[in-house]
Design a protein around this nucleic acid. Structure first.
Length: 277
DNA sequence: CTCAGTGTTCAGTG
DNA sequence: TCACTGAACACTGA
C-alpha cells in the first residue's frame, strides 16, 4: 500500500518502535532480489548492536539513521509494508488500522528486527518488488539521490512549479508519476490530483496554462496533506474524492460522472471526461 | 486459468 | 543526446 502517505505512516510507526533503541536481533530472508546486493551475513553485521538515531523519508523511500554507517534503506515496491509490535502482546500495523490481532510474524516477512525493549519491526513484501539496501549516505547515493522534490515537504513555489512542467513534453500524468519530478506521487494520487484540478491526464505537461499548473500544484498539496492528516486511511478520505470510485464496476461517481480508463505511461489512468479537460 | 495491480528499471525508439 | 514508452520483474487475489 505504498504511496507517500502510507510510507509516511510507516516512518512514524518505525520511529515509535525504533528510535533510541538498540537492535538486539536480526532475521532476514535469503533473498538476493529484495536484499539488493546485501548478503544476509553483511546485513546482520551492519545492524546487530546498532542504536537507531532517526527514521527519515524522501518520496516513497525511507531509511534508518544508525550510530554507525552504513544505514538501512527501504522501499516497499508495490506490495510491501511495515509491521511493528511493542510489548510482546500489543500489535500495531503501519496502516494504523485497528483490526483483530494479526499473525506474528506477518506473512511474507523479509526482514525482522528485535529491539532492546522487546519491540519488533518487520518488513513484509508479497510480490518482492520492494528493496532493502545499505548505504553510507542515502541522500547522496542512488536511488534516493535521483529523486525530485519530496511532494509533501518540498513542493516548489508556484512560479517554479509552472516552469518545471513547461520543461516536460510527456503526458501530465506520466510526469506526475516520474519520481525524478515529484517524489512520492503514485498512481492513485496522480489520478486524484488531476481529477481535483480538472485536467485531462493525457494533456502534455508543457501545454498546461499557468493557471492550470497552479491548480495542479494546489490539488497536489491538498491531497497529500489531507491523506497524511487522515493517517493514509482510505476509508476516511473525503467522499468527494475519486479515490473511492476509481475501480468501481459501474464506472461513475455518486454525482453521476462517468469514469473512463486509459493507459498512460504503462499504468491505468482513471479519469472523468466531463470534469477533466 | 488469466489478468490487473497503490512501483521501478532498463532497453529500445524517435 | 535526450525524453519518452513499454516490457520485464514476481506474485497474489479477483
Amino acid at each position: 500500500m505504498p504511496e507517500l502517505p502510507e510510507v509516511d505512516m510507516a516512518r512514524i510507526a518505525a520511529r515509535r518502535v525504533a528510535v533510541g533503541r538498540r537492535i538486539t536481533g536480526v532475521w532476514c530472508a535469503d533473498d538476493p532480489i529484495v536484499f539488493e546486493g546485501v548478503a544476509p551475513a553483511r546485513l546482520r553485521r551492519a545492524l546487530l548492536g546498532r542504536r537507531v538515531r532517526a527514521v527519515r523519508r524522501h518520496g516513497k523511500h525511507f531509511w534508518f539513521e544508525l550510530d554507525r554507517r552504513p544505514w538501512l534503506c527501504l522501499h516497499f515496491g508495490m506490495t510491501g509494508g511495515l509491521h511493528t509490535t511493542r510489548a510482546p502482546s500489543v500489535k500495531l500495523v503501519s496502516s494504523g488500522r485497528q483490526g483483530p490481532a494479526e499473525a506474528w510474524p506477518p506473512r511474507f516477512a523479509r526482514l525482522r528486527l528485535t529491539f532492546d525493549d522487546g519491540g519488533e519491526l518487520v518488513i513484509a513484501d508479497a510480490r518482492r518488488l520492494g528493496r532493502i539496501r545499505l548505504r553510507d549516505d542515502p541522500r547522496r547515493e542512488p536511488p534516493i539521490s535521483l529523486l525530485g522534490f519530496d511532494a509533501l515537504w518540498e513542493l516548489p513555489p508556484s512560479p517554479r512549479f509552472v516552469e518545471l512542467l513547461r520543461e516536460r513534453s510527456a503526458p501530465v500524468k506520466a510526469v506526475l508519476l516520474d519520481q525524478s519530478f515529484a517524489a512520492g506521487v503514485g498512481n492513485w494520487i496522480a489520478d486524484e490530483v488531476l481529477y481535483q484540478a480538472g485536467i485531462d491526464p493525457r494533456r502534455r505537461a508543457r501545454s498546461l496554462s499557468a493557471g492550470e499548473a497552479r491548480r495542479l500544484r494546489a490539488a497536489l498539496r491538498s491531497v497529500l496533506t489531507t491523506a497524511v492528516r487522515l493517517r493514509a486511511d482510505g476509508d476516511r478520505f473525503p467522499r468527494t474524492w475519486l479515490f473511492h470510485h476509481r475501480w468501481d464496476r459501474d464506472a461513475s461517481t455518486p454525482r453521476g460522472e462517468k469514469i473512463r480508463r486509459t493507459t498512460i505511461a504503462g499504468r491505468t489512468a482513471a479519469w472523468v471526461p466531463s470534469v477533466q479537460r
